[in-house]
Amino acid sequence: MSWDPQILVFACNWCSYGGADAAGVSRFQYPPDVQIVRVMCSGRVDPGFVLRAFNKGADGVLVTGCHLGDCHYQDGNYKAEKRVEMLYTLLGQLGIQSERLGLEWISAAEGQRFANVITDFVGKIRRLGPANGGEGP
């Protein structure tokens, strides 16, 4: 039975999206199961976006941004971190495994790291199977 996960990745304009570009330019391979949404800052990722993704059938959501201290807007990634912490609890209450949400810091120069992070996250979601308890791998 083949199943491909639906995974949403939020990438910030200044760092992690640049990391995705760097991965592309350097031809580092990563699995094609992710859809990347560019946001200006990881701090723009409203917890509501994450809930809506899961409600619409996402199996995993990964929030990425600049390393702490490197945020283009100074502290947007600290806000993202706080929101993701809150979401771990909220997802647990909602009955959605909190491992399905990830948070990673990737700089614009870290193409290899971007590819590795995506590969690991996709692997994890594949092991977890579909979020809504539907048909597994």
Partner: peptide
């Protein structure tokens, strides 16, 4: 709140 409450109700 980014539609969180409404989304939870839909979930």
């Amino acid at each position: 709140h980014g539609e969180m409450m409404q989304t939870m109700a839909r979930i």
